[in-house]
């Protein structure tokens, strides 16, 4: 890979993606294809263009990384970024969308958000002839949605969970953000998988993860449910649609000495990947996404569209399921901390 030196991080990433692809036969095609396709293409300039970037929040590793990557990419392509962050407050989110729409930018990129809250305003932007792009928001009002393949993330993570617990047992599920499309898809995929494992049961009522104080809240909710199911084996695993609840849940299991229970989540936050590396930690599976690549790709799609190119409805950025066995390979392949 010596010839890549000096070309920049993103080319290195692509090269390593292509190289790493050989280890995971199942994912090799997908990764190599993405890497090659992106490497050959010239990205059009954004000179003189104002790109509005509306983030739902930046308090989480995924959001913050994707948000910053978008801003950097707009600057790199010579455009002006109008970037705002609603700090996970829906009222703020709607005001910021209103204000952005009124400024008539050349494009608007929405990063996450509850669909029913953001969609009416994305429609309004579209009606105002502003090209709308999204990250992790599936809506007919956006031209292109850049996202991980959440169907695959959802089913792969569910299969890992089911296989780890031997296809039987009670699982605890955090389902607080069903209104957020990627979370809904992952949850539906979990249900679709366990439908064929009649001995796997979701403990009712499901838990509701919250923002803010996600870690503390997950810790106390799991501590409470462990007291309710004190026998070892009465709970086999804990699932959440992202990995900040997984962090709190894992800490609660360690604190209660119930490390026979395993935890699963999505996003590849550095703290959780660190737990996965620890052989004694109950963290057993995490779908590692590439937020930086997702943010960058969304902006490149904006540039391509403004240059008159056609875009696919969705752009999928590869994600890999990390478990205790493959954690080192996955972090190397995705170049994550």
């Amino acid at each position: 890979m010596g010839e890549n030196r000096g070309i920049g991080r993103r080319n290195l990433l692509k090269a390593s993606l292509a190289a790493g692809a050989t280890f995971a036969a199942a994912n090799a095609g997908l990764l190599a294809a993405t890497a090659n396709a992106a490497a050959e293409e010239e990205i059009p300039s954004l000179k003189g263009k104002r790109v509005a970037i509306s983030a739902t929040g930046t308090d989480h590793h995924f959001d913050l990384t994707a948000y910053n990557a978008q801003i950097d990419e707009v600057k790199k392509l010579g455009g002006e970024a109008i970037a705002v962050d609603a700090q996970r407050n829906d009222t703020k989110l709607v005001s910021q969308l209103q204000t952005l729409i009124a400024q008539k930018p050349d494009a608007l990129v929405q990063l996450l958000g509850t669909l029913t809250v953001v969609d009416p305003w994305l429609k309004r932007a579209k009606d105002a002839k502003i090209p709308v792009f999204t990250i992790d928001v599936g809506t007919p009002n956006s031209i292109n949605n850049t996202t991980s393949d959440n169907w695959r993330i959802g089913s792969d993570l569910a299969l890992q969970l089911v296989s780890d617990i031997g296809g039987a047992g009670n699982i605890v599920v955090f389902n607080g953000f069903y209104g957020v499309v990627p979370c809904a898809i992952r949850y539906d995929q979990l249900k679709a998988v366990i439908k064929y494992y009649p001995d796997v049961k979701i403990i009712e009522p499901e838990l509701r993860d919250v923002i803010p104080n996600t870690v503390q809240d997950a810790f106390s909710q799991i501590t409470a449910i462990l007291n309710k199911y004190p026998e070892k084996g009465s709970i086999k695993a804990i699932w959440s649609a992202w990995d900040v609840p997984q962090l709190g849940a894992t800490q609660a299991l360690v604190a209660a000495g119930r490390t026979e229970i395993t935890t699963y989540g999505v996003d590849g936050s550095p703290e959780v990947l660190q737990l996965l590396r620890d052989p004694n930690s109950p963290a057993a599976g995490n779908a590692a996404q590439q937020p930086e690549e997702i943010g960058r790709t969304a902006i490149r799609n904006v540039a391509r569209y403004l240059a008159g190119q056609k875009l696919p409805r969705e752009t999928y950025i590869p994600a890999l399921i990390a478990n205790k066995k493959n954690i080192e390979e996955v972090t190397k392949t995705l170049r994550l901390g």
Binding site: R88, N89, T91, V94, T114, T116, V117, D119, P120
Partner: peptide, 16 residues
């Protein structure tokens, strides 16, 4: 008014 603004009821009203 808030239901109209947010197209529904959402969490986090306490922050107000």
């Amino acid at each position: 008014l808030s239901v109209a603004y947010l197209s529904g009821s959402t969490t986090g009203a306490g922050e107000m």
